[in-house]
Computed example of a mutant assay.
Amino acid sequence: MSSFLVASGVALLTAALVMTLAALRARQLGRVAVVDVAWGLGFVAVAVVMTAVGTASEGNGPRRWVVLAMVGAWGLRLAWHIRRRALGDHQGKEDPRYEELLGGPLSQVGMGVAVRKVFLVQGFAVWFISIPLQVAAVSDVASWAVVVLGIAVWLLGWIFETVGDAQLAAYKADPDRGPVMDRGLWAWTRHPNYFGDACIWWGLFLAGAAASGWWGLLAVVSPLAMTYFLLFATGARLLERTMMKRPGYPEYAARTSMFFPLPPRRSGAVPASR
């Protein structure tokens, strides 16, 4: 347990450093939205540091590198995707979500408000969600079967997140697109990227914590918290409030599962797009 406390403390310091750098960059650019890029990079940084911590502890070597590869592949792709999307969607301007959260542009509310409402919260979230990585750094593998299961769940999430993002980008680039994206994975779930993100962290929990024995099961608070935020707090439910105002979206919602992928329901509604 003492090894875990050390790893957890180091993870907290790492998350704080990443968000401090992100805050400094936000001040330089005048945009808080840089924190979205720092989100994925923060987990990669924690995973790298946890691997280093684990090297000096009793943690299982092969599993540490597997977890690092999983986090690295997910976090780096997400950071790259969000940065590219932000440059295209907002063209160097602040994300409207953050202006609403802060109560105005960063230049008006000041960095103190941004640090308190955004960077501190995000830094704590990175530390809390990364608990399975902290467990994996200082523990041996009790069941490689659970590790393999975790990799399979992670891979499912990776496919939904990457393919869903690619399909959405192709939809936006199509001049003949309909009013609502309902193609590919989006015909089975209205939020394939959010579902994929949840699977990523359930997979990391299984491979990194649950496979370590009974005490690692306590880290279930991490994927539970991530799933809650993706589904109810800042993810799907919040986005649905805006999307329901878009023409064709209520009909799309009537035939398509909101989160868990399910076959499209048959209804008498007119299809929202071709």
Rank of each mutant, 00 (worst) to 15 (best):
P261E: 08
W127I: 08
W74K: 07
G248F: 01
Y249G: 01
M19I: 00
W186C: 06
W215E: 13
W158R: 03
F43T: 03
V32L: 04
L133A: 08
K245L: 12
V118R: 05
P192H: 09
R255W: 01
W144D: 07
G178H: 10
G164D: 12
V153L: 03
G59Y: 06
W154S: 06
G164S: 09
G54F: 07
L262H: 01
G72T: 13
G213T: 12
M1F: 13
L149S: 09
L87M: 10
R77P: 07
G9P: 01
I159T: 09
A225I: 15
L238Q: 12
G92I: 06
W144A: 07
P264Q: 03
F229Y: 14
R183D: 12
G30V: 07
G54C: 05
F232T: 06
F260W: 14
S273P: 02
F195T: 03
A207P: 11
R83Y: 15
L238A: 12
A236S: 13
A69H: 07
M181H: 12
S273C: 03
W158Q: 09
F43A: 03
L12F: 15
G30N: 03
V46G: 06
W39V: 06
L206P: 08
W154T: 05
P175Y: 13
W80Y: 13
D176H: 15
M243I: 04
D182E: 15
V66M: 11
G42H: 02
T256R: 00
R27Y: 10
G208R: 05
S143T: 07
A16I: 03
S107H: 04
P264G: 02
W188S: 04
R177T: 10
K172C: 07
L262S: 02
R25V: 14
G178N: 10
M181E: 08
L238I: 09
G184W: 14
W39D: 04
L217D: 06
W188E: 01
V153M: 01
G213M: 15
L185Q: 05
A136S: 13
V66S: 06
L149R: 05
I200D: 00
R177M: 09
V10S: 00
L231A: 12
V6K: 01
I200P: 01
V67L: 14
S130P: 11
G75V: 10
L149V: 11
A269M: 05
A47W: 11
W127M: 10
D197T: 12
